[in-house]
Design a protein around this nucleic acid. Sequence first.
DNA 1: AATCTGTTTGACTCCTGAACAAACTATTTA
DNA 2: TAAATAGTTTGTTCAGGAGTCAAACAGATT
Lengths: 393, 393
Amino acid sequence: MASSEIARDINRSSVLDSIRIGQPLSRADLARQTGLQRSTVSLIVDELIDERWVVEGALGQLPRGRRPRLLYLNTHRAGIIGINVMPRQTVIALADLNTRILAQESIATQLDPKIFIKVLCSYTQRMIEHHPEVAFEGIGVSVPGRLDYEAQRVEFAANLGWHRVDLKEPLERSTGLPVQIENAANACALAEVWSGAHEGVTDLIALTVSDGIGTGIIANGHLVRGPSGAAGEFGHVCLNPDGPECKCGGRGCWEVYASNVAAIRNYSGQKDNGTRTPEGKLSNGSGTSFADILSLAERGDRRAGRALDEMARYLGLGMAMLVNGLAPAVIVVVGEVTRVWKRVSPIIEQVVHECAHTHAATRIEPADDSKQPRLRGTIALVLQKHFRPRLFA
Amino acid sequence: MASSEIARDINRSSVLDSIRIGQPLSRADLARQTGLQRSTVSLIVDELIDERWVVEGALGQLPRGRRPRLLYLNTHRAGIIGINVMPRQTVIALADLNTRILAQESIATQLDPKIFIKVLCSYTQRMIEHHPEVAFEGIGVSVPGRLDYEAQRVEFAANLGWHRVDLKEPLERSTGLPVQIENAANACALAEVWSGAHEGVTDLIALTVSDGIGTGIIANGHLVRGPSGAAGEFGHVCLNPDGPECKCGGRGCWEVYASNVAAIRNYSGQKDNGTRTPEGKLSNGSGTSFADILSLAERGDRRAGRALDEMARYLGLGMAMLVNGLAPAVIVVVGEVTRVWKRVSPIIEQVVHECAHTHAATRIEPADDSKQPRLRGTIALVLQKHFRPRLFA
DNA sequence: AATCTGTTTGACTCCTGAACAAACTATTTA
DNA sequence: TAAATAGTTTGTTCAGGAGTCAAACAGATT
């Protein structure tokens, strides 16, 4: 059931998103970009100014003719809280409409969800109280694990040891703000399309490489979560049924061979490769962290380099699967490995080239970790509904 | 850029599709189903009757009140030509709006595309001439291979030995009808969602198992083709870099282990498993066809049974990948294997259960081959634009 | 004078909601 | 038994509100 208001909905989002990406822009610019009439754009912009999403700025310069009034997003319109839950620490940040981070705090991620939620809520509350001038729009949370999107609950997060944890309800109760949760890899994928760096790209995969491997898939411009929200677990595709055990309960999953943990295992026991070695948790035997391996390799350590090369080969093997199966325009790699991109990239490219014969022309790029893609994804998650047309909501 | 006509577009498609799935239906039924006002439905139905998509039938029965006028699709409104190119034969069919097949003809699929296209065009022309009473809407073609959707051309079809073949242009020139081409697996996926058998399902994969393996992916209700049209080649995901050679140029692809050809190879040389055996074309050495193996197994032949069991294990392994990565509501298996579904299904289910720990609750179902899913997909392809709202053109 | 920006206005499309006409069943009344 | 009446459901009509468009117009600058 669609009324004529659906047109306004679509056009309004299109105008607002154009301003977000291209600001500053004049009404005439917007008319050209969106294909709408200048009169229509004026009406929509008036509405957006009324609702304080947009503000008028100074006059622009042109070679001739009347000078255009430039339009900007009103950064004071809304503040968004982004919460990035990672295995060791959790980042709580306050961002504005331009996804610029205004304040940020870190807390330790407790293994006991009950205690953790209490601490998280109080820190979040404090951040809100410290910024009384901000009109808060909502809270976005990214969690490394499988989510139930209907119940808005964490189903299972292996890296955290969580099982059926409800973050939404306590956060909403203690802050009074709407909370949305999203899988970590999906958040990264969202951040990438939100950033505007991939113009015209409707098919993209974010590959998160850390203790595990996650895949956030965007196809036809929409996140692929699957009806149960379980999509995106390509990290647990079985490459070798007789391989080492995985946290998921299976054996020889892709992430067993291509995650940071795999590189650590490789580095520590560089002989008994392929058979069932101990799980290789970060706190175990060796004591060497993935960051150590990266540093060692950068300083020329052969053994560390070989471990990374092996990891890269397996990363390539799995990416070839994604290229074959989904042929996205871009695969964005997120994680510490991107620190040694110059080393691993050629290996990945070569393996993908060998194993994917689809001529799919998928670009493989490293994400800029300094831009905190996961955190920005949570902010995009909250803002999405205002900037993208909600069809079939 | 959206005008208020977009609402009519959406509602009209919604009404027309409701009639298609649920006919016969009254205007009041439609209002209830679509959520529109009875007045709006009346206007839209009038328009559809004017354009001859819909016809009024008899009066319906009700316990009390005015009797409703029942509405039907007007099967005479449009005829669709569906062409299903398969490795050995090509089927040309004429269908009506209800996807009922009115006429059907088979020709041999020539390996030389030039000769084949000539024959195909003349047969298609003849079918059109034999039905002067039909108003033809268009032609849908399904080809087993990788397509370039922008150029509407076959890029590469390994099973046919085709390379950059343009079917569209000659068919359009000789018939004067618009032609659309689609990958075989995608056509099957389209047919499944078109059939109405999977209500409420927006995420589905059609798995075509024959000489090769294809995957037609529907996510969020839309076909996933990838920007280059190369998506859906999960059949060429590498399971074993040292495995037997594949037609694609790689080694150890999924389809090398799980296609009909794999079962034949397994049956014929049930000792030298895993090493580089001859490609196993159907016409080669052994002389045993896949149909033979199915019949043998049905009659209790052990060796044939083992070959099928092995094939089923690998089918399960690959499906586990799809479940892990995309978690669709349904995977529909298309191909001759479904003849022995009772035998292979438990094996597939078991392997998927072992290898996919996502609790994704994906149903795995056999397609009803007698309903010619691929052919019906080509018809859906042509009709789609009238029955589905075209958003973002 | 030329050119570009932004606003105003009338025409057209679309849906809604309420009122209304049509058609049928069941029940009551004569 | 036949006719009248009440109650229901279907389908149509019409005024009103929301949207976009296209063209004319006003404003501002070189």
